[in-house]
């Protein structure tokens, strides 16, 4: 699949995100839109998966550590065929398989129950350790928020991943620079990111998190790293693709009303609130 096709899937994913959050009346559009391209590059290019066999033992895994961005993950999983796209309408509703934060017991293709920030990397380390122990070829990916790096447990896990030389583990930081209360460096700076990960003995790569060629390049670079875990610092824009949401912290966890939804969908190349 070329980068043009990937970009067009990403546009559809963004429209799903806006529609689903609007229909739910709540959710997290900003961080979902910032990581949409990353997830499309993973699920439609890098990852070895079988949507019709979600429990395949040798599958690559993704842990969405920034669980609040699950509308993006759900949209990508639906587009990839793990469940019908129509399910996206049930986001956050009673009895839905699409919970407000990821629930691996309910959703095919979701590899970890997350939402409480800082806990995904540890789980990914555990998966990577177990897969190595069984000499399985699978890779474990984990998507982290940049604000999330303020959680101490992330660095406990980063230490462990390097200690156990988990070269089957790749972290991707969705570096959009914003968290609920504002800019990350104003709230509690986790910077400098590259130096920190390097100091924790990870192989580090930086790329534009909205450029499909750059993302595919970064995801192929991780395969060349041996003896250490790899991290991709993906520079992104929170709210990417919707002009009034871009770089506005206020759109971290707020649903657009009908009018805003219409504007957002038209900017994303699709008309109307319906599918």
């Amino acid at each position: 699949m070329d980068s043009q096709e990937l970009a067009s899937i990403a546009s559809r994913v963004r429209r799903h995100i806006i529609r689903a959050i609007h229909q739910a009346g709540s959710g997290h559009p900003g961080g979902s839109l910032s990581c949409a391209d990353i997830l499309v590059a993973l699920y439609f290019s890098a990852m070895r998966i079988r949507p019709d066999e979600p429990d395949w033992e040798d599958r690559d895994r993704l842990v969405l550590s920034k669980g609040h961005a699950c509308p993006a993950l759900y949209a990508v999983l639906a587009e990839r065929g793990f469940f019908p796209v129509e399910e996206l309408d049930s986001l956050r509703k009673l009895g839905s398989m699409l919970q407000g934060h990821p629930d691996m017991k309910r959703t095919p293709g979701v590899e970890a129950s997350t939402g409480s920030l800082g806990q995904g990397l540890s789980q990914a380390v555990g998966m990577a350790l177990a897969l190595k122990l069984d000499r399985r070829p699978a890779r474990v990916y984990v998507l982290l928020g940049d604000g999330e790096l303020q959680e101490g447990q992330v660095w406990e896990a980063a230490m462990a991943a390097a200690h156990y030389r988990l070269d089957n583990l790749t972290a991707i930081v969705d570096f959009n620079g914003l968290q609920i209360d504002g800019r990350i460096e104003h709230v509690m700076s986790p910077l400098p990111l590259v130096d920190k990960w390097q100091a924790f003995n990870w192989a580090v790569h930086q790329c534009d998190g909205h450029n499909m060629d750059a993302l595919i390049g970064a995801l192929s670079w991780v395969g060349k790293v041996t003896g250490a875990p790899s991290v991709i610092i993906a520079r992104t824009v929170k709210g990417r693709g919707v002009s009034f949401m871009e770089n506005v912290a206020d759109w971290h966890g707020k649903a657009p009303d009908a009018e805003k939804t219409k504007v957002a969908l038209s900017e994303l190349g699709g008309a109307g609130v319906g599918r």
Partner: peptide, 8 residues
């Protein structure tokens, strides 16, 4: 967390 991942 690591124990959970290994169980998964």
């Amino acid at each position: 967390g690591i124990a959970a991942g290994m169980a998964a």
